[in-house]
């Protein structure tokens, strides 16, 4: 199926709002917005972010630009944090503590300083386990 950029933008609501404090002209917000448009409008998602511009400028108390559930912990562990959220999902869903008819998607944003973030993100890529989430390096 052809990917119609205009159609996607017109029909899928932005899951990353304006009102964030990224610099004027920064390229990261349009990227994040388009990554999130890969989700279906009805999807429930949990996003993880590593410390960096993309996190500190979009989630300054008491405002967040992310319309999905979002968690930030520290510099180097968006991947590990995401694996914890995912483990909670697997366990709670299997125990019937979450709605059975609903699927949750997980996206980890690796942040903009790859040297710091790479370590435990790499672990997730290398550990061979099937994970339910994607990692986006900005």
């Amino acid at each position: 199926m052809a990917y119609n950029h205009k159609e996607i933008i017109a029909n899928r609501p932005s899951r990353f709002t304006s009102g964030h404090r990224m610099c004027a002209g920064c390229g990261a917000p349009p990227v994040a917005r388009m990554v999130l448009r890969a989700l279906k409008p009805e999807d429930h998602a949990v996003i993880t972010g590593a410390t960096g511009c993309m996190e500190v400028s979009t989630f300054i108390y008491p405002y967040t630009a992310w319309t999905d559930s979002f968690i930030h912990t520290a510099f180097e562990c968006a991947g590990a944090t995401c694996s914890g959220v995912e483990a909670a999902y697997k366990s709670m869903k299997a125990q019937g503590k979450l709605p059975q008819d609903k699927d949750t998607k997980f996206i980890a944003f690796g942040g903009d300083r790859r040297n710091l973030r790479y370590r435990n993100t790499k672990f997730i890529w290398c550990n061979g386990k099937r994970t339910r989430y994607g990692i986006c390096m900005l």
Partner: peptide, 12 residues
């Protein structure tokens, strides 16, 4: 924050 996406109320 329990109102996800409330940054839209912050005018830039």
């Amino acid at each position: 924050i329990y109102e996800a996406g409330n940054a839209k109320n912050f005018k830039t």
